[in-house]
Simulated assay, not measured.
Amino acid sequence: MKKHTYILLFASVITTQLFVSCNEESIDKVNAPIPYESIGGYENSDEIAKDHLLAKFSFDGNIQDSKNAITGGVGTDVTYETGVKGNAYKGSASSFIAYNTVSNAIINLKNISVSMWIKTETHTGGAQSLFMLPKKTDFWGNIFSLIEANDSNTSMFLKNHIQKDVTPSIPWSGQFIEHKDDNILKNMYGAWKHVVWTYNGTSSTYSIYIDGVKLDLPATISKRYASDPSTGGGPYGELSNSEVSKFIIGGYQQHLGAPWGNPDGWMLHYTGLMDEFRIYDTALADNEVTALYKLEKDNR
């Protein structure tokens, strides 16, 4: 009897241990983190065109470019607020960031995509500068984005500027691309908006996306020319910046001091919020912009 009792007791202990072990494995499986579902084939936003991402400013309590293409930053009256991902840059009537060093990768851009999240309100009295790649020998900079004054509705008059300085020079070397009138950007104030604009030097084509959606632009805006196409002007071609010096977020090159003069009264600092500012040396494809929007919105 004792022998049988020991056998039964041993079997009971083994069974209990197996049950506990299996139960713990089941609990571990239940509590295991669920992997994110990929978006557009990407797990996080930095995977998109990763070999073409030159600069990235996340503003998570600092003004650094995590790609180190734009360095030596000094902030003036810079503060932070909750953004789309972590913190965001919070602008004001006196805020801006001046960077002293710009890499050759930025200087020699031939194609470009600029991506950012903005949240702002309407303003009066001039144009607010989101960013600018300055030019030492010109009143205007090389590449930049401005928001013109608008106090009448929720639509945004946005201006983007591109540059092509070549020898021999072309008549339309510096070009403003304006979103106004029938092409004004609708419902842009009071909420976070994802803005991406691109220029493809191979096709001389400009595009803009709001919240991951490509806007339908007329050819008068999307197609860029080196001179008047009605008199035989050919395609604009690749970008070519010149006399690049420094970089600025939230202001104009005139806010940087010498060699520029004092800013005109209409040159305003950006007063809204900005998050996840990126520069690529390629024109992102439609699916890449959509994935970038969704992944950043998902905090990835």
Rank of each mutant, 00 (worst) to 15 (best):
residue 245 S to K: 13
residue 254 Q to C: 06
residue 243 E to T: 00
residue 257 G to C: 08
residue 266 W to K: 11
residue 244 V to A: 00
residue 255 H to N: 11
residue 247 F to Q: 02
residue 265 G to T: 15
residue 241 N to E: 02
residue 260 W to K: 04
residue 242 S to W: 03
residue 247 F to N: 04
residue 257 G to A: 11
residue 267 M to Y: 10
residue 248 I to L: 06
residue 244 V to D: 00
residue 257 G to P: 06
residue 256 L to T: 06
residue 261 G to D: 10
residue 248 I to R: 00
residue 253 Q to K: 12
residue 238 E to W: 12
residue 241 N to P: 02
residue 264 D to N: 11
residue 262 N to T: 15
residue 238 E to Y: 14
residue 254 Q to N: 13
residue 251 G to S: 05
residue 238 E to I: 08
residue 264 D to C: 08
residue 244 V to I: 00
residue 255 H to F: 05
residue 242 S to D: 04
residue 252 Y to K: 07
residue 252 Y to S: 06
residue 257 G to S: 07
residue 257 G to I: 10
residue 240 S to Q: 10
residue 266 W to N: 15
residue 266 W to Y: 14
residue 263 P to C: 10
residue 241 N to F: 00
residue 246 K to Q: 12
residue 253 Q to P: 06
residue 248 I to T: 05
residue 242 S to A: 09
residue 263 P to D: 12
residue 254 Q to T: 07
residue 253 Q to E: 13
residue 262 N to E: 14
residue 259 P to E: 10
residue 248 I to G: 03
residue 240 S to I: 00
residue 242 S to V: 01
residue 253 Q to S: 08
residue 241 N to K: 01
residue 248 I to S: 03
residue 264 D to S: 10
residue 243 E to W: 03
residue 257 G to D: 09
residue 247 F to I: 02
residue 240 S to P: 03
residue 256 L to Y: 07
residue 263 P to L: 12
residue 256 L to E: 02
residue 266 W to T: 10
residue 238 E to M: 09
residue 242 S to F: 01
residue 251 G to E: 02
residue 259 P to I: 13
residue 267 M to N: 09
residue 241 N to Y: 02
residue 250 G to E: 00
residue 251 G to Y: 06
residue 250 G to N: 02
residue 263 P to Q: 06
residue 260 W to T: 08
residue 238 E to A: 12
residue 244 V to W: 03
residue 266 W to V: 09
residue 251 G to F: 07
residue 244 V to H: 00
residue 264 D to W: 11
residue 259 P to H: 13
residue 264 D to T: 09
residue 257 G to V: 10
residue 243 E to L: 02
residue 266 W to I: 11
residue 262 N to Q: 15
residue 251 G to L: 05
residue 245 S to G: 08
residue 248 I to A: 07
residue 245 S to P: 03
residue 265 G to V: 14
residue 238 E to D: 15
residue 260 W to L: 11
residue 250 G to S: 03
residue 246 K to E: 10
residue 241 N to S: 04
residue 248 I to N: 02
residue 263 P to S: 11
residue 262 N to G: 11
residue 251 G to K: 07
residue 246 K to A: 06
residue 238 E to K: 15
residue 253 Q to M: 10
residue 265 G to P: 05
residue 240 S to Y: 01
residue 267 M to I: 04
residue 249 I to F: 04
residue 252 Y to Q: 01
residue 267 M to C: 06
residue 251 G to I: 06
residue 258 A to R: 15
residue 241 N to L: 01
residue 252 Y to M: 04
residue 249 I to H: 05
residue 255 H to P: 05
residue 242 S to Q: 02
residue 241 N to T: 01
residue 265 G to E: 15
residue 258 A to L: 14
residue 250 G to V: 00
residue 256 L to F: 07
residue 239 L to M: 13
residue 253 Q to I: 06
residue 239 L to W: 04
residue 266 W to Q: 13
residue 243 E to S: 08
residue 246 K to T: 01
residue 243 E to F: 01
residue 253 Q to R: 06
residue 252 Y to F: 07
residue 253 Q to W: 06
residue 264 D to M: 08
residue 241 N to I: 01
residue 263 P to T: 12
residue 241 N to D: 01
